[in-house]
Amino acid sequence: MSLPSPLQFLDARRSVPSKQLGEPGPDDATLLRMLASAVRVPDHGKLVPFRFIRIEGDARHALGERLAARTLHLDPDAAPAVVEKDRARFSHAPTIITVVARLTAGHKVPEQEQLLTAGSVCFALLQAAQALGFGAQWLTGWMAYDEAVAATLGLAPNERVAGFIHVGTPQMEAPERDRPDPAALLTDWAP
Rank of each mutant, 00 (worst) to 15 (best):
S2A: 15
P4D: 11
Q8T: 14
D11G: 12
V16S: 10
K19H: 11
Q20K: 15
G22W: 01
G22M: 14
P24I: 08
P26W: 08
D28E: 11
A29W: 06
L31G: 07
L31D: 07
L32W: 08
A36I: 08
S37P: 00
S37L: 13
A38S: 14
V39I: 15
R40I: 07
V41K: 11
D43W: 06
H44I: 07
G45A: 14
K46W: 03
L47A: 12
V48G: 04
F52K: 01
D58H: 02
D58Q: 05
A59R: 15
R60F: 05
H61C: 13
L72W: 10
H73C: 08
L74Q: 06
P76V: 06
A78P: 09
A78C: 06
A78F: 07
A81E: 14
V82F: 09
V83W: 12
R89F: 06
R89P: 04
F90Q: 05
F90H: 03
F90V: 00
A93S: 10
P94R: 00
I96Y: 03
I96L: 10
I96F: 09
I97E: 01
I97D: 00
V99Q: 02
A101T: 01
A101S: 08
A101L: 01
H107Q: 02
K108W: 14
Q112K: 11
E113D: 14
Q114F: 06
L115E: 13
A124F: 00
A124L: 07
L126S: 10
Q130H: 10
G133I: 08
Q137C: 13
W138T: 08
L139A: 10
L139T: 13
T140F: 05
T140K: 11
G141I: 03
W142V: 05
W142M: 09
M143F: 13
A144W: 02
E147A: 10
A148W: 01
A148H: 08
A148F: 09
T152R: 05
G154H: 13
L155H: 04
A156M: 11
P157T: 06
P157N: 04
R160I: 07
V161Q: 05
A162G: 11
G163I: 02
G163H: 01
I165G: 01
I165R: 04
G168V: 09
P175E: 15
P175G: 15
E176W: 13
R177D: 07
R179H: 11
R179A: 10
D181N: 15
D181T: 13
A183F: 11
A184Y: 04
L185I: 04
L186K: 10
A190N: 13
A190P: 02
